[in-house]
């Protein structure tokens, strides 16, 4: 095994081009487990810790440009206003020690259906900027996950930034697990309200071969909110609408039975948290409206 220690991004891209099978390691929270337990013996480990760019973020007009290695702790503490869904998801990642090392780039690189960041990214809307010596490109998050633990990266590409739309409305994230901390998601759900476009977006984790959006549920809710004038009148979403939304979210799941939970439970639980996160976000939206109106 060789340990490659590029000092700059350009060196890293060159190394990856030369050794396309090299395994990038940043927080190490996935890769080192595989090495410690003898599940993986790559010929090259490509250490990204020395590349300062990957630990930076920049808040722009429309979106946040998040370095692939920015630790979850930083996201929780510094980006709660801009990326509330991702900040909530970050707080559920493993343990404080892991949150101090792991970042969104690693989550995307591993592309596990259980990655905690994915539902939040799907709901917020994001693009993954990847680069190789051949150049860079931006992959919409909806096209990023291509199979179980597979993503749209080419062998010579590395993840550099994640561009995440700044929240224009309330966002929520719920993860269901059988322990109150340090647990892998049995299933997870992210929801973002986008009042600017009068749409909602969702993300579901651990309930299908890849992280997915519940598109039928989104379309149903978009239509129901529009039809009832809810974005304007700020009325409570009727229970029947919430129930239908929850059911459609359950329906978007394609889960398996495994040691962490049954497929039936996953479908059921996604429905429950879909209903709850809708209630929380909508209540928050109504609250914000009242404050705005009150000020006006």
């Amino acid at each position: 095994m060789d340990f490659l220690r590029p000092a700059s991004w350009q060196e890293a891209l060159a190394a990856k081009a030369e050794h396309p099978a090299a395994v990038p390691i940043a927080g190490g929270t996935d890769v080192m487990v595989e090495i410690n337990f003898d599940h993986r013996r790559p010929e090259h480990l490509l250490d990204l810790n020395r590349i300062a760019d990957l630990y930076e973020w920049e808040v722009g007009e429309e979106s946040v440009r998040l370095g692939a290695s920015v630790p979850y702790t930083q996201i929780m503490e510094n980006l709660r206003a801009e990326l509330p869904g991702l900040a909530l998801a970050s707080r559920t990642v493993a343990s404080p020690q892991i949150r101090n090392r792991g970042g969104v780039g690693g989550n995307l690189g591993t592309a596990s259906p259980a990655g905690d960041a994915h539902p939040a990214l799907l709901a917020a809307g994001a693009e993954v900027e990847v680069e190789s010596v051949r150049g860079s490109r931006r992959i919409p998050i909806d096209a990023f996950f291509t199979g179980v633990k597979r993503n749209a990266l080419a062998a010579d590409e590395l993840i550099k930034w994640v561009h995440i739309a700044k929240a224009d409305g309330p966002q929520q994230f719920s993860k269901v697990g059988t322990r109150n901390a340090m647990v892998i998601a049995v299933c997870a759900f992210g929801l973002a309200l986008h009042p600017a476009t009068r749409t909602v977006r969702t993300g579901i984790g651990s309930a299908a071969p890849t992280p997915v959006r519940a598109k039928a549920a989104e379309e149903f809710l978009n239509a129901a909110l529009e039809e009832g004038g809810f974005w304007d009148n700020g009325r409570i979403v009727p229970p029947s609408v919430a129930a239908q939304f929850a059911q459609l979210c359950s329906g978007a799941c394609n889960p398996i039975d495994d040691v962490r939970g049954t497929a039936g439970y996953r479908r059921h639980a996604v429905g429950v948290v879909a209903r709850r996160t809708l209630a929380w976000t909508w209540e928050s939206y109504r609250g914000a409206r009242r404050v705005t109106e009150g000020a006006a």
Partner: peptide, 15 residues
């Protein structure tokens, strides 16, 4: 949430 079922995972606010 730290005192609720689900804990840090933010699954219920009392519901």
């Amino acid at each position: 949430v730290r005192q609720l079922p689900g804990g840090l995972s933010n699954t219920t606010h009392g519901e």
